[in-house]
């Protein structure tokens, strides 16, 4: 073997070792991030008596699908899922609509207070949500909004709006004026310009705002548990919250209800993973 060949072998070996190290780091991080969830699913399929083992995972003697049946029925899974989808869907629509309208008015229309109004609306970003829990509870209680859809919808929209507005103003600035000028020549009114010309051009940013709003609110439960008391509008996290009291000694069923309530978001995330990644990256870097 000549010297030249030897160094070549060495360098490919070195390359492989390097590549191997990269893989080890990545796999290690993946295990740390995902193993608790595997453990959760594993324990949810066992019976409570099997849990006191020394091993990390259990191989259940008989897979206990019954845990999931109990979780599904007693956790009001379908009702809470429906409520979550409805409330979050409405919040997304409202945030997108209101933020497009306000962004257009603040960036394109000519009026003295446009900058001030935009700044005031963006102030919401700095306000900690949880500081409004106490006064909002009082307000909703007084005007009879507790235990209604509005008690969740209003704060969800309010606290996602600043970010939505922020993103939308950025995107509207990048749309060329010429398009609108042509529309005005054709006799278009402002409303038609906003909803028929500008809105379709904002599609990617609408997706970003929708994803951020959904991620912000889907798993929210602090406001929900403060403003709601009956089952009617409770959202998905309540399946877990209520179960821990009700089945405090039946651990296996608690594991099942946690896996079940986590499932919809995880499945949707895995399917839409590329879009959500893009949305979060855009939203976070610009926001």
């Amino acid at each position: 073997m000549s010297k030249k060949e030897k160094t070549k072998v060495d360098s490919t070996l070195l390359q492989r070792i390097k590549k191997g190290c990269l893989w080890i780091v990545l796999i290690l991080v993946a295990v740390i991030q995902i193993f608790p969830l595997i453990w959760l699913v594993d324990f949810s399929l066992a019976s409570s008596t099997e849990m006191f083992t020394n091993g990390l995972l259990i191989i259940p003697e008989k897979i206990q699908w019954g845990n999931y049946v109990t979780a599904f029925v007693d956790g009001h899974f379908l009702l809470y899922l429906k409520n979550s989808i409805l409330i979050n869907g409405l919040a997304v629509i409202l945030v997108v609509l209101i933020s497009i309208m306000a962004a257009y008015a603040c960036r394109r229309m000519r009026w003295k207070l446009s900058g001030l109004v935009k700044t005031i609306l963006l102030l919401g970003m700095m306000i900690p949500i949880h500081a409004t829990l106490l006064p909002n509870y009082k307000i909703y209680n007084t005007i009879g909004l507790t235990d209604t859809l509005w008690a969740l919808l209003i704060p969800y929209v309010a606290f996602s709006l600043p970010q939505g507005l922020f993103l939308m103003t950025g995107f509207i600035d990048s749309i060329p004026w010429e398009l609108e000028e042509a529309a005005v020549m054709d006799g278009c009114g402002i409303y038609r310009i906003v909803f028929q010309i500008i809105t379709p051009m904002l599609k990617p940013s609408i997706a970003t705002v929708a994803i951020m709003t959904f991620l912000n609110n889907w798993n929210e439960f602090m406001m929900a548990s403060t403003y709601l008391s009956s089952e009617k509008w409770k959202t998905l996290p309540f399946s877990v919250l209520e179960f821990t009291g009700q089945y405090s000694s039946n651990y296996a069923v608690q594991f099942a209800v946690m896996a079940l309530t986590a499932a919809p978001a995880v499945i949707v995330y895995i399917i839409l993973n590329k879009h959500i990644t893009k949305g979060v990256a855009m939203g976070a870097v610009k926001g």
Binding site: N219, M258, N273
Partner: peptide, 24 residues
């Protein structure tokens, strides 16, 4: 893409689930 997806999964899970999971 696979690793990127796996790392982000805990983020889409409700704090309610995360908190009780860690309690266990």
């Amino acid at each position: 893409g696979f690793f990127r997806c796996v790392y982000f999964i805990p983020n889409v899970i409700s704090v309610a689930v995360i908190a009780y999971l860690w309690k266990f």
